[in-house]
Simulated scan of single mutants.
Amino acid sequence: MGIGRRALAEAIGTYFLVLIGPGAAMVNAYSDGAVTHPGVALAFAFVVLAMIYALGHISGAHINPAVTLAFWSVRRFPGRDVAPYVAAQCAGAVAASFTMGAVVGPVGGFGATVPAVSVGGAFAVEWLLSFVLMLVIVAVATDERVAPGFAGIAVGLTVGFCAMAGGPLTGASMNPARSLGPAVAGGIWDAHWIYWVAPITAMLVAVRTYEFLRPAGSEADPSRSVPLGVEGPISPVGR
């Protein structure tokens, strides 16, 4: 499948991630707390699960620049496709934030991720949450011993419990595009660098950690040219 269609799928997936996730936080503010914090966390979990099952077989459902970069860093995603994926993810996120702003107005800070703890504490929280998310993603995507068909559930639940625990502290972004959309729409850039540096570095470490934990000989050569998504190889592949 051509890169244009796969990038469009990434834009659509990230659009709905931000529309439903940060969007739920905006609706919560608009409705005086009707959604609740657990409701917002579940919104993130459910939309990630849905996008993986809807688009995973098309683009891999990375819907996160840090995931794309992590797969590329261990030769599991072609370098030529990184820029189109990241651009599409960021564009989808920004479009979603402006959509929500047009519907409910600039409430809830557009669901922006802003530290409620110290900068160092926020970096640590985002780093650890991003690490465990990528650890789960690389396990379900690359290890043949993991039962097939459960990627959406595993990744969705991980996003959900991370949002439940880390949301009040940092927004539990784990995703540069998810943070970029509300920042652009609302002009809220407080400690924004954390939401790029922490997820990217954590996921680069997480993907290598799982490669180290994996028993020798448990998979094919990781240098194979088939790009990976959350559910495993993206196939068929073409330009």
Rank of each mutant, 00 (worst) to 15 (best):
T99G: 01
T99E: 03
G101H: 10
V103P: 02
G105R: 07
G105I: 12
P106T: 12
P106N: 12
P106C: 13
V107P: 07
V107T: 09
V107S: 08
G108Q: 02
G109A: 00
V114F: 03
V114Y: 01
V114S: 07
P115Q: 07
P115F: 05
P115G: 02
A116N: 15
A116Y: 11
V117F: 12
V117R: 04
S118A: 05
V119Y: 09
G121Y: 09
G121N: 04
F123V: 10
A124L: 15
A124Y: 11
V125M: 09
V125T: 13
E126N: 01
E126L: 00
W127V: 13
W127M: 13
W127K: 11
L128H: 10
L129R: 07
L129G: 13
L129N: 10
S130M: 06
F131N: 13
V132E: 09
V132A: 06
L133A: 04
M134G: 14
M134H: 14
L135A: 15
I137Q: 10
I137L: 11
I137G: 09
V138R: 13
V138T: 15
A139D: 11
V140G: 10
V140A: 07
D143A: 06
D143N: 13
E144Q: 14
R145L: 01
A147H: 15
A147F: 14
P148R: 12
P148Q: 04
P148D: 08
A151L: 02
G152P: 02
G152V: 04
A154N: 11
L157D: 12
G160S: 09
G160H: 09
G160W: 07
F161S: 02
F161R: 00
C162L: 06
A163F: 04
M164T: 07
M164K: 00
A165P: 06
G166K: 00
P168K: 06
P168G: 01
T170I: 01
G171M: 01
S173I: 10
S173T: 10
N175T: 09
P176K: 12
P176T: 10
A177D: 04
S179N: 04
S179G: 08
L180H: 05
L180S: 04
L180E: 05
V184W: 07
V184Y: 11
V184E: 05
G186F: 01
G187M: 08
I188V: 14
I188N: 04
